[in-house]
Design a protein around this nucleic acid. Structure first.
Lengths: 135, 135
DNA sequence: AATTATTCCTATAAAGTTTATAGGAATTAA
DNA sequence: TTAATTCCTATAAACTTTATAGGAATAATT
C-alpha cells in the first residue's frame, strides 16, 4: 500500500500540472483547500518535493509552488521514492534503498529472485507513467 | 515492503516444507530456534496459517504442525494475503481486500489503472510461485 | 517603515500499526 | 498425574505515520 502522504503528494502534483499555465505560482493553501489535504501536512510534503527538485518554490507574499519539470518528465517512480522510499518489497532487492535483510544470508537466499521480478515489473510500469499521463 | 511477520511466516513454511517427510508433526519451538523467530510471536503466526488452512496442527505432548497441502500448492499470494493483507498498493484496486479510497471519486479517478497494472503483474508472479519453488 | 501573507524549519503531539510478551486454558501422550 | 504441546486473549513495547504548533525568513504592498 502507498501511504496517505504519497496520495496527497500525487494529488498536489496533478493539481500543479493542471494549473501549469498560470503566470503566478500556486499557494499551498489553495491546493490544501481544493484537494482537502491538511494544510500544515501538505507544506511538509511540498517541501520534500521541492528538496527533491520536482518543484520550484518562491517565498514572500506572492510566493508559491510550480512544477520544476515538464509534467511528462515527472514519473511515479520519482514521487514514490521521494515520499514512501523503496519500491521493492524487500530491502535487499531495492535499487535505491538497498539494505541487507536482517539475519538473512544473501548468498543462499532463495526468495530474492521472485522479489526482484516483482520489483522489475513494478519499476517498468511506474517508471513509464508520468504525471502528465494522469491528468 | 513485506512485514517481518510475513518473512517469519515464509521461513516457517519453507522449514515445514523441507521437513515434510518426517512422520511426526514439528514443534513451533523447533522452528523458532532454527529460524531465530521469537517463539510466542511465531505461535500466533502459525495459528493464523492454520486458520487459513495452510497448516494442520495437532495438540498435546506430541502435537505440532505440518503442511496441509503439497508444497507446490502453497503460493506466495496465499501467504502474503493471510499475513499482510492486500497485495495491491491502493485499497480500491485490491481483489481480496477491496475498499473505496477515502474521498476519491472512483468514477473519475485517473490513477487507478496504473495501480491495476502493477497489481496484475505482481499477482502473476506471486501467484505462480510456490513454497516448493523456494526450497 | 509597517503590514500582510507567503514559504520554510524544527519540534512534538496524536493516532495507528507492527512486533513481541505474558499468563494461562485446553489437549494429549506417557 | 505429569509434562509438553497448541491455543487463546490481553496487553506492552517499539516504531511509523499523520498531523499540528509556533515561529523565523522572505518579499510584495500599503
Amino acid at each position: 500500500m502507498i501511504s496517505k502522504k504519497c496520495k496527497y503528494a500525487l494529488k498536489a502534483l496533478i493539481y500543479l500540472a493542471k494549473n501549469q499555465e498560470r503566470p503566478t505560482p500556486i499557494f499551498s493553501s489553495e491546493i490544501a483547500e481544493q484537494e482537502r489535504i491538511p494544510k500544515k501536512f501538505l507544506e511538509t510534503i511540498l517541501r520534500e518535493l521541492r528538496n527533491a527538485q520536482l518543484l520550484h518554490s518562491s517565498r514572500g507574499k506572492t510566493g508559491g509552488y510550480k512544477l520544476n519539470k515538464a509534467a511528462d518528465e515527472i514519473l511515479l517512480t520519482d514521487l514514490i521514492r521521494i515520499i514512501d522510499g523503496p519500491i521493492a518489497m524487500l530491502p535487499c532487492v531495492s535499487l535505491n534503498y538497498y539494505a541487507p535483510c536482517a539475519e538473512c544470508d544473501e548468498s543462499s537466499c532463495t526468495i530474492k529472485s521472485v522479489f526482484e521480478k516483482v520489483r522489475d515489473e513494478t519499476l517498468a510500469i511506474f517508471g513509464s507513467t508520468s504525471i502528465k499521463s494522469l491528468l
